[in-house]
Amino acid sequence: MKEIKFGKCLLLELLQKKGMTQSELSIKTGITESQISLYISGKRKMSYLSAVKISFVLKCHAEDLYVWKEE
């Protein structure tokens, strides 16, 4: 099987599509705004728990939060 790696974080695009701010997402998930900013900038990858919390709020799948690369 090929290796699957994280690509670009799509969180900012998903927030814009839902008309939601990083601050609103922070309040609804309990994840700090600074942590959300790190995810969006690509400086940090989401834990599975964070991805699930965010996906529940955004009504998407956790896998939708990133572009996935197969290598």
Rank of each mutant, 00 (worst) to 15 (best):
M1Q: 11
M1K: 10
K2C: 07
K2I: 07
K2L: 12
K2M: 08
I4F: 15
K5M: 11
K5A: 14
K5E: 12
F6L: 07
F6P: 03
F6I: 05
G7R: 05
G7Y: 02
G7W: 09
G7L: 02
K8Y: 13
K8M: 10
K8V: 10
C9P: 00
C9Q: 00
C9T: 00
L10R: 11
L11Q: 00
L11E: 00
L11G: 01
L12H: 13
L12C: 14
E13V: 02
E13S: 08
E13Y: 05
L14M: 09
L14D: 01
L14V: 04
L14S: 04
L15E: 03
L15G: 02
L15S: 06
Q16K: 15
K17P: 00
K17Q: 07
K18Y: 06
G19L: 09
M20G: 14
T21Q: 14
T21R: 15
Q22C: 06
S23V: 14
S23A: 15
E24Y: 02
L25D: 00
S26R: 09
K28T: 06
T29F: 09
T29M: 08
G30F: 07
G30Y: 05
I31L: 05
I31M: 05
I31S: 01
T32N: 08
T32M: 03
E33G: 09
E33H: 04
S34G: 06
S34R: 03
S34T: 06
S34E: 08
Q35F: 14
I36T: 02
L38W: 02
L38I: 02
L38S: 05
L38P: 00
Y39I: 03
Y39K: 01
S41Y: 00
S41A: 08
K43S: 11
K45G: 08
M46A: 15
M46D: 15
S47W: 08
S47Y: 13
Y48I: 14
Y48Q: 07
Y48M: 09
L49H: 14
L49Y: 14
S50Q: 13
A51N: 04
A51P: 01
A51C: 08
V52K: 08
V52F: 10
K53G: 11
I54N: 02
I54E: 01
I54V: 15
S55I: 09
S55H: 13
F56L: 13
V57W: 03
L58H: 03
C60N: 03
C60W: 01
H61F: 12
A62W: 15
A62G: 10
E63R: 15
E63M: 11
L65V: 06
L65S: 05
V67E: 06
V67I: 07
V67M: 04
V67P: 00
K69P: 02
K69F: 13
K69H: 14
E70M: 10
E70H: 13
E71D: 13
